[in-house]
Computed example of a mutant assay.
Amino acid sequence: MGNVQIITDSTADIPESLTQELDIHVVPLKVHFGDETYEDGIDLDSAQFYQKLADSAVMPTTSQPTPYQFEEVYRGIHRTNPDSPLISIHLSANLSGTFQSAHLASQTIGDEIPITVIDSKRASYAIGLIVVEVAKLAKQGASLEVCQSRIDELLKDTTVLFMVDTMEYLQKNGRIGKASALVGSLLKIKPILSLNDDGEVFPFEKARGNKKAIQRIVNEFHERYGDDPVHVGISHAQAESTANELMERLKSEFNVSKSVIADIGPVIGTHVGPGALSISFARSGNQ
């Protein structure tokens, strides 16, 4: 049997250097500015997106790949790797129809190609962290069972906490979930948000200002992970200096075995807006 092949979608916000290094297949979602349509990360990168967002009079929208697009990706991988099982890990089904499209495609061709489709119940590099950890195992030749076992661990262990400069984007794009109670009450308040066990946005806590919010997030990760070796990911929307400073702090306070700083791409950026910052933690595997 060939190495397990790992597929994800562009909302995982994995840096291209990592997708190439670990042979991760990425299926793009789409961003729409009025009549203009772009493929996330293909013909619209993060810098171009945020500039367009600032210049545009219309709020962008997003759409998931069709089942047929996933089917074509799966068939293409299978032609090149006919003996390899496929694992396809995607954006929370409570935030997008991407998982459903992938699932429908797998049902159509499941008799021909062994595919496992997984709802990560997460977004941005909180998905990417899971994908990268499993892709490392797959590239080392780990079996399907070992890869699936590691995914099960990561689905239980990966924590994401994030902040947005405004709730406007989450609200207007219908992804606000259980955080709707915060709308209109954010004067001098920085909301800390997370994704619950169903993969839906919910308010974790409120803090007064960025510094106190970041300190609360750091404290929470200390409580959850202590001195365990951790894979840490920070994804940001035009907040690179803050992300770099925070990562240096996390490296000094935690046992960081792997660290990744990633841009929040066009699709997730459509829903969180400029200035968003997301921090993801999981215990590192024995790799």
Rank of each mutant, 00 (worst) to 15 (best):
V4T: 11
D9V: 10
S10M: 11
I14A: 11
I14T: 12
I14F: 07
P15A: 06
T19R: 06
Q20M: 09
I24V: 05
V26W: 01
V27W: 00
H32G: 07
T37C: 14
S46K: 07
A47F: 14
F49Y: 09
Q51Y: 03
K52H: 09
S56K: 05
T66S: 15
Y68I: 10
F70Y: 13
Y74R: 05
G76D: 10
H78S: 12
R79I: 13
R79D: 13
T80F: 04
I87Y: 02
L91R: 01
G97C: 05
Q107K: 11
T108P: 00
T108N: 10
I109V: 13
I109H: 01
G110S: 00
I115E: 01
S120A: 14
S120V: 05
K121L: 01
R122H: 11
R122K: 15
G128I: 07
L129Y: 07
A135G: 07
K139N: 14
Q140A: 14
G141H: 00
G141K: 01
S143R: 07
V160N: 14
Y169W: 12
I176Y: 00
I176A: 02
A181K: 07
L182Y: 10
L182C: 12
L186K: 11
L193K: 06
S194R: 14
D198K: 14
F204T: 08
F204M: 12
F204I: 06
K206Y: 08
K206C: 08
R208G: 05
K212W: 03
A213R: 08
I214E: 12
G226S: 09
S235W: 12
A237N: 03
A239G: 07
S241E: 15
S241L: 11
E245K: 15
M247L: 15
R249N: 13
E253D: 07
I261H: 08
I264F: 05
G273K: 03
G273Y: 04
L277T: 02
F281T: 03
F281W: 03
S284V: 03
